[in-house]
Design a protein around this nucleic acid. Sequence first.
DNA 1: TGCAGATGCTCAGTATGGGTAGCAAGTTCC
DNA 2: GGAACTTGCTACCCATACTGAGCATCTGCA
Lengths: 129, 129
Amino acid sequence: MTARPSEPADSGWSASMNVLGDFIRAQRQLAKMSLREMAAMSNVSNAYLSQVERGLHQPSLKVLQSIADALQLSTDQLLKQAGWSTSAGSDGAGPVAQSTEDAIKADPRLSPEQRTALLGVYRSFVGTA
Amino acid sequence: MTARPSEPADSGWSASMNVLGDFIRAQRQLAKMSLREMAAMSNVSNAYLSQVERGLHQPSLKVLQSIADALQLSTDQLLKQAGWSTSAGSDGAGPVAQSTEDAIKADPRLSPEQRTALLGVYRSFVGTA
DNA sequence: TGCAGATGCTCAGTATGGGTAGCAAGTTCC
DNA sequence: GGAACTTGCTACCCATACTGAGCATCTGCA
């Protein structure tokens, strides 16, 4: 589990650029759901959910909505994660955004030094040096 | 043309419940474009566009974006026409992470190992060992 | 030590999205 | 009456979204 077997060669997309799938999986685990539970709630087969989370397939709108519903997310949030530009007005109101970086910056339990350190670690991970 | 030959009997969907297709067709004609012109602009085949407009097929996100682009509409407008409720269920209590820890857990840019590591660092800082 | 249940994943098949080629009907020009 | 062009639509085909059944692994629990 959690092991990426081989990265299936892929067709053009730089291998591990699976934003949507990772996001869905993260949200599902956050909600403490198994694939089968989520499958039952969304009427999407657990097999397919697994593949979507691993980035092997690009789900349709219908499935995306079902997933959003099961996870109690807005479809917009999922669509943002799926590769769509939203073009119109970038974000504006877009509140929920909530990046990890922002969360760290806003965390009152961290001292300034700790904050800086944690941000450093995080950035080194995601390559936002 | 513009004549509906026979309403293809249909399979369950109440025949003329084709909101998205009608909208697209209306917008296209408003822009005084032929199917083939629009096909050229959007890189979607005229054949498929025809079927989408007639409600015989449900286009994918990718196609929807291409169409929106050709028609100079925002993708949102088209998505609204496609049957999507934006629902988001109840919202409010929704997950999506409020704490730093949740943000880290939900961050799609982190690998499982990185996530664990970062959480470890964070917890060591705030004493939530 | 077993077994039973849950987990995520894979394999094989079906349904549907989407493209290519070609059709019939309508214009315009000869 | 043609061609030569456009229009929208359809028949055929392939790629991919999606499902169902089953596998392998990891727990409990006797």
